[in-house]
Design a protein around this nucleic acid. Structure first.
Lengths: 229, 229
DNA sequence: TGAATTACTGACACTGCGTCAGTAAAGTCG
DNA sequence: CGACTTTACTGACGCAGTGTCAGTAATTCA
């Protein structure tokens, strides 16, 4: 909309736009580092700016406010997550196995990028007043849908290859699985100390959660093959 | 510990302690009202104080800071939740039915006290550095355990009456169920608008989640009776 | 009653967010 | 190359909100 002004006689505009995008990404990089260290609440824009070697005011030229910065992180998180899920699903033999792989990939993702998982948790917990069509929030929401689509594809695959029972509303199941997995990981992360106290390891807990949560997908008669151990 | 000082010669100390406790509760009441309206982040201590008809500084005499106030709300939430779960479980015929009832009671709780559920979500998402033995955080954690115990009791009951399969580590399953349910409710709440867009109602989603999440509990051979509809 | 303890408040320091007027730099055109 | 425009950037400000503290009012105790 604002991009195509007068068909930019020179290509310097293009170059500058690229640089702008680069700087934008650099700011998000800085934000991630700061958020990771301090947590979203206590992180200071001042620190983000310093880390990006920029004045604090300039950050506000690229992002409306702190919340927008957080959303930018969420978007990155979801994009990376989607990649991981796709990769995990691709390596699995059956639809049912894909679902398990997706769940474990989400767990691995949370383990590898604690900040990203935390960002998603925040986003998940935040109840939006109203999501404007063009807003960043909307974009994040859509990135989320793209993630769910991976699950849905796996479910469809499973129904095709017979490893997953008939499902009327795949989105319903995908969301359920997402909620389950996210909830379980969150507990595993934040209650790790408590789990230890009770004599459980986070890994054991999550492994159980995955098995438990995916069990209901198998066809009634013949249980799927991939069930390991 | 600090209560029994010198065996309080008069009973005026007792009375004053009671009043203090009353005021404390009143402050939490005020906090709940303000938090509910504004959300935890944006809620102002000023408003809490005004609502409690107290100076802002006095609030800090009763609660170290805003976070402690939030924890106090969490504690209330967990106590009330526990009551609800116990009541729900008591009315169910079998152990398996109790588990379903507990899940639905949690959903009803979240529906009835959105603030409490939000408070628990925050608590669940917050990763503590270290939980000091005497801290409020510890107390909340223990209130949480008391809630899990209700689920564990139901699991045990189900194993006794044969409606639930053999389970090695009930706490593991209880935590899994908790994580699942919490995650599902959170999605249902925060993504309600999105669910509508996709043609799903929050109730439908949660009903599905409960059925889906508890399915894995039944014994292999004979499915439990209580499965309604 | 006066002394001591406890309840309470107003005012302050401090921190951190978001804004804006203004400066520096880069691009554009003769 | 200048003059002039557009864009990138910053320092400094206002503001809001948290937590603290010295000091005052109220209660209790003797």
């Amino acid at each position: 909309m604002s991009r195509a002004r007068t068909a930019s006689r020179s290509h310097s505009r293009q170059r500058r736009d690229d640089e702008k995008e680069l700087r934008r990404e650099a700011i998000i990089d800085a934000a991630e580092a700061v958020f990771a260290r301090a947590g979203f609440e206590t992180a200071k824009m001042e620190d983000v700016a310093r880390r990006a070697r920029i004045s604090r005011a300039l950050v506000y030229l690229y992002f409306k406010n702190k919340a927008e910065l957080q959303l930018a992180v969420c978007r990155r998180a979801l994009n990376i997550l989607r990649e991981r899920l796709v990769a995990a699903a691709a390596a699995a033999p059956s639809g049912y196995a894909q679902i398990g792989a997706i769940g474990r990939a989400y767990i691995a993702f949370a383990d590898e990028f604690p900040l990203y998982f935390a960002a998603l948790s925040r986003f998940e917990a935040h109840r939006p007043e109203s999501v404007a069509p063009g807003s960043t929030e909307r974009a994040v929401l859509e990135a989320g849908v793209a993630v769910h689509e991976v699950t849905i594809a796996a479910l469809r695959q499973g129904m095709r290859d017979g490893t997953i029972r008939r499902i009327d509303k795949p989105m319903l199941v995908a969301l359920t699985l997402w909620g389950f997995t996210h909830g379980a990981i969150q507990i595993a992360q934040t209650k790790a100390a408590f789990l230890e106290e009770v004599g459980l390891s986070a890994d054991e807990f999550l492994g159980h959660a995955i098995r438990f949560g995916t069990g209901g997908l198998q066809p009634a008669a013949a249980p799927a093959k991939g069930k390991r151990k």
